[in-house]
Design a protein around this nucleic acid. Sequence first.
RNA 1: CGGGGCGUGGCUCAGCUCGGUAGAGCGCACGGUUCGGGACCGUGAGGUCGGAGGUUCAAAUCCUCUCGCCCCGACCA
Length: 479
Amino acid sequence: MSEQKLPTRAEDFPEWYNTLVVRADMADYGPARGTMIIKPYGWALWENIQAALDKRFKATGHVNAGFPMFIPQSFLEKEKKHVEGFSPELAVVTIGGGETLEEPLIVRPTSETIIGHSYAKWIQSYRDLPVLINLWNSVVRWELRTKLFLRTLEFWWQEGHTAHATKEEAEFETLQMLNVYADFAENEAAVPVIRGRKSESERFAGADETYSIEAMMGDCKALQSATSHHLGQNFARAFEIRYLDKGNEQQYCWTTSWGISTRFIGAIIMVHGDDQGLVMPPRLAPYQVVIVPISKTDAERAAVMEAARAVRAELTAADIRVKVDDREGLTPGFKFNDWEMRGVPLRLEVGPKDLAKGTVALARRDKPGREGKSFVSREGLAATVAAMLKDIQQSLFDRALAFREQNTFDPKDYAEFKSAVEKGFALSYWCGDGACEAQIKEETKATTRCIPLDQPGGAGACIHCGKPAAEKALFARAY
RNA sequence: CGGGGCGUGGCUCAGCUCGGUAGAGCGCACGGUUCGGGACCGUGAGGUCGGAGGUUCAAAUCCUCUCGCCCCGACCA
């Protein structure tokens, strides 16, 4: 149950987020610093995210498997850049069963190394390729500053790991999965994203190329929402993942990895949420419709509850996820606010007046007050509701896209650039030089989020150093 | 790790300066009146005041140590 008054996004966005996540029953703090408990309501959202993604992974030929959480320390050390990238944030087990271990075990921060070990054993011939495996698991990274869903010591995610015979196939896979993520984000979560390539400094430790989808949050900061890595032959060489080609020659495989995490829940919250609370995209919402029965007398209550259950049955039959709020002792007004905070896309009210008229009241979460409220006939209700959910889904996407475009700038010079990244995204020509990038970061706190795949074409001068630049980069302050 | 703040019922906090019977609001339980936008009344349960040591006739309050958490700076899906 919820209390009143959430801080507004305008007055304190981080506080709005922290309060909301806990109040809306999405998650709670774990007892160990930086850990997170995902509560049933939050996990229900994650399950819907998983289902939407898993369907897409299967459709592109992938299969799921389970890999160990513990990785021999020596594995991490086999790929040089990979160790360097991850060693500061590893959790290491040194004691097991009361004995000091001969070789410490790493709690997986990601599974490239143990995958590499296995693929080396499994792959002998070009006939064994490609290997297309996905893992649903949790990983541990010892972060210093944590925030529920966005950065915690342990987080849940999926990591895909594939091995291919050629560079081209691996490249295709990397971009294919990037597109899967973009499709999921936009069409399931109603989160508009920018697909792009990471700069060298933002690249995954051990990758030749990292791609990401980037989204704008309600405070105009960027959130990397999923990544897809072309690992080249780096892990193949480190772990001896080789195959015999048709000409009977040993070749190193080309591998990829790609992931999206519970962090994406943070994106959903920060993209769609408003000052009333969460706004769940209908396609992923744990409950798409909440029915609030309204009655005074016992007789009314019995009749209203019967109608509520009948409506639930009708909507459930149409594959709509419905919750009847039959809690006693709470006023309807309280329940309205409660479910608005939890972000249920559509509220359905059934009261004595509706029974008399053969109607129900519908209130859209995306449109507050009278504007979003309508009274509709019980006839054909499932179709009415389904259409409205579809409309809400679309309007959430449209609104988020408009917001991003409104806050994305094309600065003419570096002075304009500086104020642009204070306010939102800046799309600017950039020379690609790491030192230049580092200076921009120091001066503005903005980083290159990605080099968008969709480029305007042509060329220009780097927004910072003025050197010739072939591509525009997306700059923003980021989570 | 550097700087700042805080630990008192489930939650938010008051009490500490000036030592003397642990408080409030919210939440929770029960009873009643309510119910189409966050209802109200009554009754009640619940705390070794983060921990250890010290000073004192007496410590939430004073002293010492310790643990933990939050916020701000260097790394990150």
